[in-house]
Design a protein around this nucleic acid. Structure first.
Length: 213
DNA sequence: CGGCTGATCGTG
DNA sequence: ACGATCAGCCGA
C-alpha cells in the first residue's frame, strides 16, 4: 500500500479532514508495528478559527510546526497527561491542521492493549488521547515528516457503502462562533468513533424517530 | 459529575 | 515570574 506523498497534504484543513477518513496510520515501534484506520477527524482552520492554537496567526514554540508545509505531525500535551496528534495541512505559512480523534485498530492490537489499560478494541483508540497512548505517539513525534519517518500514512479508500458525517467539534466551548462550525468528520456508524452525533432539534421532534428508539 | 496533571502563554 | 487555562480520560 502506498505511503501518502507530502504533496497530498497541501490543501486547507477543512478539505483535507474528510479526505483523511479511511487512511491508515502506521507507527513502527521497537516492540512492533501498529496500524489503525482513521475514522474521526477535526479541521482546525488557523488564523480565522477561534478554536485553533494558531488563531490570529499566533506563532509560538509549540505551534511552530503548523507554519511548515503540510504533511508533518503536530503533537502536543493536553491536561498535563495526554498527547493529541494532528496532521499539518496547507502550504507554508498557513497554520492549518487536522486533529485525529479516533482510529479503528488493524494491526498490533496486542501492543495497543498493553499500552492502554483496556482490552476492548472499540475503546483502544476512541479519543485523541487514547489513540496516541495506544499508538505510542507523544511529543517526541512532533514535527515528524509523515512521508518519510516511522510514523506515516498509507493511502486507502473508504469501504463500500461507508458514508461521511459532519458535526460540531468536541470541547471547544471557549471558541465563540467557531463552536458551531461543523468541522468534525467521521465515518457514519463506525463503532470506534469517540462521540456519537448530536441529534438536532428537528430530529428530536420527529415522532417516527422517537417511536423507533 | 470531579480529580488528575503539567506545559503553555498572555500578563505584569 | 506567575497563574489561569486546557482540542482528555476514568471511575463513581
Amino acid at each position: 500500500m502506498q505511503i501518502l506523498a507530502r504533496a497530498y497534504y497541501l490543501e486547507e484543513s477543512l478539505q483535507l479532514a474528510p479526505k483523511l477518513l479511511g487512511k491508515i496510520l502506521v507507527h513502527e515501534l521497537p516492540e512492533g508495528t501498529v496500524k489503525a484506520r482513521i475514522v474521526e477527524t477535526e479541521a482546525y482552520m488557523g488564523e480565522i478559527d477561534k478554536a485553533a492554537h494558531t488563531y490570529g496567526g499566533r506563532r509560538t514554540p509549540r505551534t511552530a510546526v503548523q507554519f511548515q508545509a503540510g504533511g508533518l505531525a503536530y503533537v502536543y500535551l493536553i491536561y498535563g497527561m495526554y498527547s493529541c496528534m494532528n496532521i499539518v495541512a496547507a502550504p507554508p505559512e498557513r497554520p492549518h491542521c487536522v486533529l485525529l480523534r479516533a482510529l479503528e485498530p488493524l494491526e498490533g492490537i496486542e501492543i495497543m492493549q498493553r499500552r492502554r489499560k483496556v482490552q476492548l478494541p472499540t475503546q483502544l483508540c476512541s479519543g485523541p488521547g487514547k489513540l496516541c497512548d495506544a499508538m505510542g505517539i507523544d511529543r517526541s513525534c512532533n514535527g515528524l515528516d509523515l512521508s518519510q519517518s516511522k510514523l506515516y500514512l498509507q493511502d486507502a479508500p473508504l469501504h463500500d457503502g461507508e458514508e461521511i458525517e459532519a458535526d460540531v467539534r468536541i470541547n471547544i466551548g471557549y471558541a465563540e462562533e467557531a463552536r458551531d462550525f461543523p468541522w468534525r468528520f467521521f465515518i457514519k456508524e463506525n463503532p470506534h468513533v469517540s462521540v456519537k452525533p448530536k441529534r438536532t432539534a428537528q430530529q428530536r421532534n420527529n415522532k417516527s424517530e422517537t417511536i423507533l428508539e
